[in-house]
Design a binder for these strands. Structure first.
Length: 291
DNA sequence: CACTTGACCTGTCCGC
DNA sequence: TGCGGACAGGTCAAGT
């Protein structure tokens, strides 16, 4: 589910809702969803939220106890805040708040002001990990993860150079590899490859400089546009207020098989590349590139 | 090392 | 309507 734009949208919501609130109660209903060393009574209960950060697809809720709630939503995770407006009128029409906790609720946090943060996760792949803030950077994933594609100082030259380690695989598999570039998942891999007119099965080493340029540019454009639209909701994704994202209304190929390519009108097809469902325009994204 | 596949879970959809 | 299988936005531990 959540890729960089979705996690960033959740972060932007939480940073408006959580800082200053103090934890009062923790309820874990699926043990595998919550990892800690048993220090939650000392460093979570009574602690105040000081900030909410994101790196790649990982969220970090920092506490004034020197601890951090490190969160990965994986495929179906949601972090939804419910405040005192819970039973009031005027919710956005696509908000699902009001019915929590439900059968997908794995962790429930109650704050001292009686507002709540729910970690819902249908498939139970996601997790929240309470750990010392200073140790977050020592997590294996954090040490391996590649640069943030939207950073101002992330250049086209750096982008291309990151792929040398995956020269003999498909460009789609390489885009999905978090150690190459942070935050790209199945949706934005397909969308950016369509933008650059590159077939997802193309060997990394076969891309031309023009294709690298277009892929770099389109990936950044697509990620920024999706953040602007509040991310993509294909099925489960919700932001911190329980609302869906609108990017899929603007998607060009993802989940659009059978519909016309917005550029050339050819029928979009779905295939399997790197073990993942993959959407392309078969007229513009071709495997045997004639040079 | 680089690369691919299966596993982790639950739910839904599609074909028989 | 029931049942089996494939599939779903991610990542890691195995395997080759």
């Amino acid at each position: 589910m959540p890729e960089l734009p979705e996690v960033e949208t959740v972060r932007r919501g939480l940073v408006e809702l959580l800082p200053g609130r103090k934890f009062k109660k923790l309820t874990v209903s699926n043990l595998k969803s919550f990892r800690s060393s048993g220090e939650e009574d000392s460093f979570l209960i009574g602690a105040k939220v000081t900030g909410v950060r994101r790196r790649a697809k990982v969220l970090m809720i920092d506490l004034d106890s020197g601890y951090t709630l490190v969160t990965h939503l994986k495929m179906t995770g949601q972090l939804v805040f419910v405040g005192e407006e819970r039973f009031g009128a005027g919710h956005p029409s696509d908000s699902l708040i009001g019915n929590l906790p439900d059968r997908s609720t794995r962790i429930e946090y109650q704050f001292q002001d009686d507002s709540h943060l729910f970690f819902n996760d249908q498939r139970k792949f996601g997790w929240m990990w309470l750990m010392p803030t200073l140790e977050v950077d020592n997590i294996d994933f954090m040490k391996r993860v590649g640069p943030e594609p939207l950073d101002d100082d992330f250049t086209e030259q750096q982008f291309k150079a990151r792929f040398t380690r995956r020269a003999r695989t498909s460009i789609k598999a390489a885009l999905l590899d978090q150690s190459v570039i942070a935050g790209v998942g199945n949706i934005y891999a397909d969308e950016s490859l369509w933008g650059a007119k590159v077939h997802p099965g193309r060997l990394v080493s076969s891309l031309t400089d023009v294709e690298w340029h277009d892929l770099y540019t389109d990936l950044r454009v697509v990620l920024a546009l999706s953040i602007e639209k509040g991310g993509s909701t294909a099925k489960n994704y919700l932001n911190a207020r329980g609302e869906k994202g609108k990017y899929l209304d603007f998607a060009r190929v993802f989940r659009r098989e059978g519909l016309p390519c917005p550029r050339c009108g050819a029928t979009i097809v779905k295939l399997r590349v790197a073990g993942r469902g993959t959407h392309i325009c078969p007229q513009e994204q071709i495997l045997e590139k004639v040079l």
